[in-house]
Write a protein that binds this DNA or RNA. Structure first.
Lengths: 194, 194
DNA sequence: TCGCTAAAGCAACGATGTTTGCTTTTCGGA
DNA sequence: TCCGAAAAGCAAACATCGTTGCTTTAGCGA
C-alpha cells in the first residue's frame, strides 16, 4: 500500500506552516480572553491564513478548538516524587488544580465539552492522567505502601477536579488535598486476620 | 422603595404566557434531539413568539438554555429508601446515572457548562443533590450505620458521574455502583483498639 | 528536473443570526 | 375607568458565518 494515512499525505512545508500558524492563533486568541466567540474567520485572520483552508481542514471551530485543546491539555508536567504516595498524590493534585483553573485551560475544557458531541471514546487527556497515576502508584507499591487502584485515583481525584472546574465551582489546594485523603482512605482495609 | 426587583415588574398575563411558551419550546426542541444548533429564531418560532422578545429578555441562546436547564435538572425524583445505606446509595446512583445519560439531559448539561462563564457560585442542581444525600445519610446514621460524609458522597459519586457524562465517557449501572462501593470504603476504618 | 496532485488562496453567494428604531399591545396602579 | 410604562411585535438593516467552484501554489515522487 502506498496510500498514506490521509492527514499525513503531505506533511511538508506549507501544510505544516499553516497548521502551526493556526494553532498559534488559537492559542493567542484563547489566551487573550476572547473566551467565547472564537470563530473560524478570526482564527484565520490572526494566522494569516484563508478561512477556507481552516474550514476544509478542520470543518468547524469546535473541532479545531478541541484538537488544540488536547495538545494543550496533555503537555506533561514533571511527575512529583516525594518518597510517599501521600506526598506524590497531593503534589500531583495541587499541580493539576493550579493548571486547570487557569482561564485559558477553562476555555479549552469548555471547548472539549462542547465538541464532544457524537465523539465516542475517551480523549487522550485521560490517558495521560492514567499513565501518571500508574507510574506513581507503581512506585509506591514497589516500596510496599498500601495504595488505591488507578481507577480509584482517576474517579475520585481527577474526575472531581475537572467537574468542579467545568461547572464553575471552587477549586483550591485544600480541596485537592481532601480528595487525596479520601482516596487513600479507600485503600485502608481491616487486615483479614486482625 | 417602590422599585420592584426587575424581572418581577410585570409578571402578569402576557409576560408569563411568553415565558411559558418559550420554556416549552426549548423543552420540545431539546427533546426532539436537535442536540446542537438550538437557535433563538427556532425557539421563537416554535413558541409563536417574536425572536426579538427572546433576545431582549434572555440575551442569548446559552442564557436561555441554562435557565431552562436548571429548572429541568432540579426536578426531583423520589428518594430511594431500601433500609440500608448501601442500597439507598446504589439505587440513587443508578437513578441519577440513568437520568443524566438521556440525550436531552446531556444537552442541558452542555448548555450549563457553556453558559457558566463569569457566573460564580454554585447552581441549584448541586443543592438538590446535597439535600438528597443529607437525607439518606441522616436516616442511615439514625439507624446506627457507619456512613460517609455528605461532602464525600457529592465529591465521589455525584462529581464523577457528571464528569463522565459531560466528557462523553461511559456511564452505566456498574460504574455507578463502583463509585458507591468506593465511597463506602472511605467510612470503614480500622477500629482504634483492634 | 518535471509533472502530478494535495492543499491553500480567492471571490462571490446564500443563509442565518443579531441588532435597532419604532409601533402596538396590555398589565397594573391611581 | 383611565393613564403611564413595560414588554411584545414588526420590519428592515446589519453583520457574519459557512459553502462552493475555480485558480494558483508548492510538496514530493518519478
Amino acid at each position: 500500500m502506498s496510500t498514506p494515512n490521509r492527514r499525513t499525505r503531505r506533511p511538508g512545508g506549507r501544510s505544516a506552516r499553516v497548521q502551526a500558524a493556526v494553532y498559534a492563533a488559537v492559542g493567542e486568541l484563547v489566551s487573550e480572553g476572547h473566551r467565547d466567540s472564537v470563530t473560524v474567520p478570526q482564527v484565520a485572520e490572526r494566522a494569516g491564513v484563508n478561512p477556507t483552508s481552516v474550514y476544509r481542514r478542520w470543518g468547524s471551530i469546535d473541532a479545531l478548538l478541541s484538537e488544540v485543546a488536547v495538545a494543550a491539555l496533555t503537555g506533561d508536567e514533571p511527575l512529583p516524587d516525594t518518597g510517599t504516595i501521600v506526598g506524590d498524590l497531593q503534589e500531583w493534585a495541587s499541580i493539576i488544580a493550579a493548571d486547570i483553573t487557569r482561564p485559558q485551560r477553562i476555555v479549552y475544557l469548555r471547548a472539549m465539552v462542547g465538541a464532544r458531541v457524537g465523539i465516542p471514546g475517551a480523549c487522550p487527556c485521560w490517558d495521560v492522567r492514567e499513565q501518571q497515576a500508574e507510574s506513581m502508584l507503581g512506585r509506591a507499591a514497589d516500596r510496599g505502601e498500601t495504595v488505591p487502584t488507578v481507577r480509584q485515583v482517576l474517579e475520585h481525584v481527577i474526575a472531581p477536579l475537572y467537574h468542579h472546574v467545568v461547572f464553575g465551582l471552587d477549586v483550591d489546594d485544600d480541596y485537592a488535598h481532601h480528595l487525596v485523603d479520601d482516596v487513600l482512605a479507600m485503600s485502608v482495609r481491616v487486615p483479614a486476620g486482625s
